[in-house]
Write a protein that binds this DNA or RNA. Structure first.
Lengths: 205, 205, 205, 205
DNA sequence: CAATAAACGAGACGGTACGTCCCGTCTTCAG
DNA sequence: CTGAAGACGGGACGTACCGTCTCGTTTATTG
């Protein structure tokens, strides 16, 4: 994970001057994550983060555009590594392996509400929206596309299938339930949903 | 559409004193809609609505719980009637008839961003979330369920299919694209998406 | 004393809407005066005034342009009535009566440092400077001019004397000592100084 | 003019290590003077001086206690030499020679506002106040006292006159007009004012 | 001629106050 | 008794300087 602002335009940190404080950087993200997890996105204020982290507001605004940027980095920092997509030998196995673990992350950890808060914020913050797509969505959609690519190679899925639309079919309903909350987002839903998607994807032969 | 608050606790309007101003009620909703459509949810402030509508803030808060309630009613007021779901004789026809018109509404009118703003707000406002589900989602999901019911009756769809999950499969990707914006939400997407869902729903026989 | 900002442009308070809170108005000025007297001008912050007065910052900024305006009104509120200028029958008597009491006010009360702080602030705040001249200086200089007018009428002072310059001769050295602090501003100084000025003013016949 | 801080505690500059940069010292004072003259005391920030002078803030704070010290040295650097007090043979002549040139300096050069800013700052900075008295006021008051001493020697002024009070009578009104701005500080005022003071000082015989 | 020591530029840091904005509530008067 | 007007307390926002603190980089003097 890289910070939202770089010391220099080309992305390489400046070698001159006092180096960025790693302590401050870590403290900000830890506190932000903690607030997000315990009190939710609405309770995340820059003043609170600064106070709890023992950091000045100026330092926060030096490195992040606004509180949304802090929130996103805090969330990504806590989540990112877990994009596992093992090859189980079948489309259904691959899908369940990946999607059920995403659902578990969204519901059994505090990251689900945090991500929802981020997506909410993104509705009125184009910069955050773009960053979210680039740094969160992209890797996950790519992973899903790879999984689908394997299924195409195996002959399970018709090669003419639009994989972007397929990825939407897989993840759309998951985020739909996360954000709208009309029905529980649980394993049972995940399995039923994936069965339906699988049928759709493999029915083309 | 009924206002969020009733005049008295028992739901019956008071008979004494000055009657409520219909002018104020309409003006508030019109101005709110106008702001939502031209400047977006973030620019919708209660002060602005009150000033432009020539209405006092107290009046707004007398009728609505908070600005989110005003926003929701304004949006619903502008959208609601259009839940058409004609019987075209086939699942695919019914789905396209309904979903493509929803997509058109979300993208060619200013209601899409307004709804997205509302959903965003709902992430930190449980009351709004519940009201949104009850007053916006419910009717649309019911309409979709009816359409699916007809397909079951026709024998196109297996009776054991979980229709709630099917509705998620239909609408989830649409709102996913609306809220995340990673890909265009257009007719082309709608048709491809619905073809996939149709295959999934009809593959069970 | 009138507030720095009026409810309406013509100076008359608006009759519509919630009236200005007298409690808030008084609390702000009392707290400001208290801080000025105990901790000095530099310690006077809008946040501190708001917090101690139980008033929101918005309320302060609604009625005063900036903290300088609050400070000035607080100081004037505490000082103003005391512009006594009794007719003692002689120029020297009149001068001592007025100037020695001004010196006493400037040195034995906390108003001296407060006024010095105000004059300091006025160096970089033209609005405050103008208000200070209008609401503090003017009345005092007018009182001094009247006193000199009586001396002219009595024949003690030559009628051709420029009274504005005479007022400067009287008060200039007092504020000079107040602001520069190179020598004590005390009664002894006042008497010696006034004797010199008197000689100058009465030497013209 | 000597800098506010010395290299070592005993006042002797260290002989080891890199010597102080004369370039930096000059650049700081030049930039400070320039800002004072063009934008005023309020616009004088240490960051701005450092940036424009191509000097680090640390260097500024190594040589001066705070920005007030920089400002004072910059002002003194620009003004100091001109304390001329020629013997014209009469009190009035000497006074006009000295005071009118001071008034000219205060009004036709940018030093007047700069000095006013310094005096303002001194109200909340005792160190600056003391330094200002020692390094600016003292020499000028001494020069005035010498001028008065000659008048006493000549028999124009009574020997019992308190010369400190006389100096206040001479310069008090000048700084009073500079700082309060209620009336123009011009040559006309200077001549009228000095005539009055002269009358007072020579009326005692 | 290296080693050493101090001053240098750059610029990040904690801190504090600023003035603005919006929320949801409260208080008056007019109809 | 409602409604417009508009002031209120609260609290977050993002900005601006302050004076301090690292860094890596000169630049003289010392050994």
């Amino acid at each position: 994970v890289t910070p939202a602002k770089q010391a220099t335009a080309d992305g390489a940190p400046s070698k001159r001057g006092r180096p960025r404080s790693v302590r401050a950087w870590k403290a900000v993200l830890e506190v932000a994550e903690e607030i997000l997890e315990t009190e939710g996105y609405a309770a995340l204020t820059v003043d609170a983060v600064a106070a709890r982290a023992g950091v000045s507001k100026a330092t926060i605004y030096r490195w992040w555009d606004d509180k949304a940027a802090v929130a996103m980095e805090a969330v990504l920092n806590a989540i990112e590594p877990e994009i596992a997509a093992p090859d189980t030998g079948s489309l259904k196995g691959d899908l369940e392996s990946q999607v059920l673990s995403v659902i578990e992350m969204l519901t059994t950890t505090p990251h689900g509400p945090a991500l929802a808060g981020l997506i909410a914020e993104a509705q009125s913050n184009p910069t955050l929206a773009e960053a979210f797509r680039e740094r969160f969505l992209k890797v996950r959609r790519t992973a899903a596309r790879e999984l689908l690519g394997r299924a195409v190679a195996r002959g399970e899925v018709d090669p003419s299938t639009d994989l972007e639309v397929a990825v939407d079919a897989i993840y759309g309903p998951v985020y739909y339930r996360l954000l709208l909350g009309h029905r529980p987002l649980d394993e049972r839903f995940g399995r039923t949903h994936l069965a339906l998607v699988c049928d759709g994807l493999t029915a083309r032969d």
